[in-house]
Computed example of a mutant assay.
Amino acid sequence: MGIVARIDGLLSDGGAPGLHGLVVLRGGRVVLERYGAGEDFRLNQSLGHVVFDAGTPHDVRSVTKSVVALLYGIALAEGAVPEPGEKLLAQFPEYPDLVADPARAGITVEHVLTMTLGLEWDETAPYTSTENSEIAMEAAPDRHRYVLERPVVAEPGRQWVYCGGAAALLGRLIAKGTGRPLAEYAGERLFGPAGISAFEWMTGADGVEMAAAGLRLTPRDLAALGALVLDGGRGIVPGEWIAEMTRPRVRIGDDTDYGYQWYVGGGPRRWIAAHGNGGQRIYVAPERELVVAVTAGEYNAEQRSTAAVLRAVTEDVTTG
Rank of each mutant, 00 (worst) to 15 (best):
M1V: 13
G2E: 03
G2N: 04
I3D: 02
V4F: 04
V4T: 07
A5S: 12
G9F: 12
G9M: 11
L10M: 09
S12R: 15
D13V: 00
G14S: 08
L19T: 00
L22K: 02
L22H: 04
V23P: 14
L25E: 02
G28A: 10
V31Y: 05
R34C: 05
G36Q: 01
G36D: 01
G38N: 01
D40T: 10
L43P: 00
L47A: 08
G48S: 00
H49K: 00
G55M: 04
G55P: 08
G55C: 01
Y72M: 12
G73S: 07
A75Q: 15
A77V: 06
G79E: 06
A80D: 13
V81A: 15
V81Q: 15
P84K: 08
L89R: 11
Q91F: 06
Q91W: 06
P96T: 04
A103C: 00
G106L: 07
G106R: 13
G106N: 03
G106E: 08
H111A: 04
V112D: 10
M115E: 06
D122F: 06
E123F: 10
T124V: 14
T124P: 15
T124G: 14
N132K: 11
N132S: 07
S133V: 07
E134Y: 04
A140H: 09
R143D: 08
Y146H: 15
R150A: 02
E155F: 03
Q159M: 04
C163F: 02
G165D: 08
R172A: 13
I174H: 14
G177Y: 09
G177V: 03
G179E: 14
P181G: 02
A183S: 08
A186L: 04
R189T: 14
R189G: 07
F191W: 05
A198K: 13
E200L: 12
W201C: 02
M202E: 08
D206M: 05
G207K: 01
V208E: 06
E209Q: 01
G214E: 00
L215I: 01
D221P: 07
V229I: 10
L230M: 02
G233W: 02
V237D: 09
W241M: 10
I242N: 11
E244R: 13
M245L: 01
P248M: 00
V250C: 04
I252E: 03
D254N: 09
D255T: 13
Y263E: 15
G267K: 11
W271S: 10
I272A: 13
A274K: 03
N277L: 06
N277K: 05
N277C: 07
R281A: 12
V284T: 03
P286T: 12
P286I: 13
V294D: 15
T295S: 15
A296G: 10
A296W: 12
Y299P: 09
E302M: 12
Q303R: 11
T306R: 13
L310P: 01
R311A: 11
D316T: 09
T318I: 09
